[in-house]
Design a protein around this nucleic acid. Sequence first.
DNA 1: CGCTGCTGTCATGAG
DNA 2: CGCTCATGACAGCAG
Length: 933
Amino acid sequence: MYLKKYLTEGLIQVAILLSLSGTRVDVGLEPGLLSPLHEMMLGPSAGITQTQFHNLWNHLEDGQPSHPKNVDLDGFTSRRLLGLVRSLDRLQVPNTELEAWLVHRVPDMLPGEHHGQPAPLERAHVRLEEDIAGPGLDPGDILRIQGENETGRDVHTEGGELDESPRPLSEWSQGSAWSNRSQQEETHRRVLSDHQMYSNSLDEEEGEMGDGAEEEEDQEEEPASRSGRERERRDSVSDRESAQNDEEQESLSLQECLRLLEHTFPLTHQPSEEILPAIGGAVDHEYLSAERGPLLSPLFPSEQPPLDLELQWEDLLEIMEPHGLDVSTRFPSYQDGPVQTPLDAAILSNYQSNSNSRNDNQMIYQDVHLMEAALPLGTISLHHPETRLLPLTPSTELDQHNMSLNLSEALENMDVNSSPRTPYHTNLISGDPLDDLNMGVDVEYGYTAFDMNPLTQDPEDNLITDNTSLGDPSNFDINFYPNDFTLASLTPQELSGANPNLPILPLSHLLVDDEEEGDYGLAGPLGDLLEDATILDEMSLLDLALEEGFSPEMAARLEEEGYLVPEQANRNTGPYDTVMPDNEEDDGGTSWSRMAQGSSRTLRQESGEKADSDSGLSLDCSFSPASPCGSESSCYSSSSSSSSSSSSVSSEGGLYSEENDQEDEEGEINLDMELEVTIKQEEEEGAVGGYYSSDVNKMVPSSYQEEKLFNGLPWQEHIGHDHSYNQAWPSTPTSVTGKTSKKKSKYSSRQSRTKSYSRSSAEQFVEAELWNRDDRRAQSLKIPFSNELIINLPVDDFNELLANHRLNEQQLNLVRDIRRRGKNKMAAQNCRRRKLGALQGLEVDVSGLRRRRAWLRREKQEALKSLQEMEQRLEGLYQEVMFSLRDEEGRPLDATDYALQFGANGSVTVTPRRQGTLPRGDSKAGKKHRDKK
DNA sequence: CGCTGCTGTCATGAG
DNA sequence: CGCTCATGACAGCAG
């Protein structure tokens, strides 16, 4: 508050100075004219800049690591959003901004029902008329007010300079000479119409639309109706003339008003104390000794520099905004306020906005509420540094389901599942407690220990749900999920304390998981534990493999460890490298059928599931090659060739599953893993598996069930999405290192892929055993390790791996290419994910800005109304003062014929109105009681 | 058949 | 200088 006051006062001083100097600062309608401060307030106009405005607002610190090269939105979308954002930059409360501010300030300063101060108003009038000053007044016409002698200021001088007597407010709004005012109003109207246009274009809420229309109407009606209102006021004042009893009260009110204004606007202008005695004897000079003259200049919006005002508004709003960003801190700071939840805040915001509350506190709350309202409900848990902006789309809420479900289930299962995995836990996720939670969730769904990584892979889900509002209890009812029995046990604190970055199980995953749970997940905790133990063994073996280069012995050991489920056991082949495509070709149909039996359903499920969750943006940092667990994960990923195949199946949709069913009828069962691989290939058009996959399977045994379990694996992401390179692999693999040749193979593979379906199953098996291009190449060159390993191993490990394996130049090149492409693939996925996230953030920002604009409009309307009231009061007070004055003959002065002028030196003079007097002749004194029209 | 979205890949630049 | 990452651009596939 103090800061706000300080800044605003300073700005007002500047504004007043500019107004006094006759400088007209136009509203910064041009975005380019906006000052850096303004840009800081609203954020960079270019939404694609690295710094997003939501970051500048210090709210919704999105969880993504702010990349130095932030998302660069391209295309129409970015332009559209940018246009919206830029348009919002033009959301300036033009001329009445300061008015609005003052209107809010004044009531605060005027606890009582005080009327405005005529003196400053008149002074402002004088200032306004300086530019159009006509011939100097006859000194004889200048009436010196009592107290003039005190200061010894020569009123004549100023009167001569100023010549023009203040106009009545009616004239003030009408006179052609008031070009400034007219321009201002015109500008204002223009801006309003602009706002209206934007309102229409942005398809705002009806309430906003109504506001805009109303606002415009108000603006148009204002100038015309003002004169009428002023006349009415004058009449009322003249009526009161008979009741002199009220004069003293008015004077007192004026005194207090001036006093408060003085405190608020300590300026450099010399006080005009002369009027005080005239106004009322009770007036204390002490309070009016300073700067009363310019006090009212702020009341004249036409004289205010709109740019500063805009900045000031922005400043005011922005100062208060950050408070509304952090729920955890904000609400405590406003405990005395009604705000309890963002929803409440939004409601209260609307309510308060409509209730025309005008004191500062209310303003603050309005701002806070507004900002909260501007935030989607899903973005409540902003207290976490990595919280993200959430879209307003329903998907957010759906994802919140995931979040809450994950957390709750994780919490529920943590104690149960953590023990078997303790070593793994400590190794992999010691840094992040929530990973444990996530693991718990994974276990709950029968996923293997590595599933938690996969679960984190869904990029969109991460984007949307990473930072769902954990801290908001209101979300829980929304997040309640049928199978989530632990939500009730979760306290908001627990959830809020959880790491928002906890990977969220996508809704699709949940749904599928539910189904799968019926199939597999019901195995019970024992099965989970066994699986965990198996996974742990597998992981240890993989670690060893990483260190020792993944020798075939280790792969064999992994097989022997028996961590494979019975289904998997069938798939395990003997020594790595023993599987030959020919065998697959022979047994392809049988293995295919077997696989179909075991996993056809799973495949279908996965296909659907992947259809939902397969965003392609699934890469997650958890499996970063550089990370300690990256190698492990890579091992697992590499081992989970089946998972990749499953993902591929998913990408390929139900077509293959249907084929699987058909093949399944053949009923021939072959335990050969290669056959299985062949099946996969046939299912997935050779996307995964095959000869090379057998190696992978050796390293890390996998089954279709495991595929299911692993379907969230990061590797699965890229592998599974590699739908474009499922092609028939030449029976005689040829090493292709050149890019052109790669492309050729790639494209030809696609063509062959389409052909493969028309071919005989044997041919399909021959050609469909291949994965993607790199996999095939690796297979052809007999690269002794998986592509996943190649891609995801840290550099050192990778080099070590290469060193451990004597590879020829071709192999080395291929391995490097595989690594490069794989990493680039992940990078591309991350990039796209970030881009989407940025887009969503922009959308959220736009929505927030819209709300803010609506709020500002309402504020402006209120301010206008208040201003009108103030003007009325000022007019009344002015009349009162005039009536309290007497001319040389002791007759009251007619306010229509005389005007109060306030000199720069603080002197106050009563000057006749030229326009008023001229037509009326010299009836200044005699027509004091003349009715106004 | 065209459009759109997704994905992988390449080229390029920056760190 | 090499590696990694990010990103634009391109192309193919699927819906």
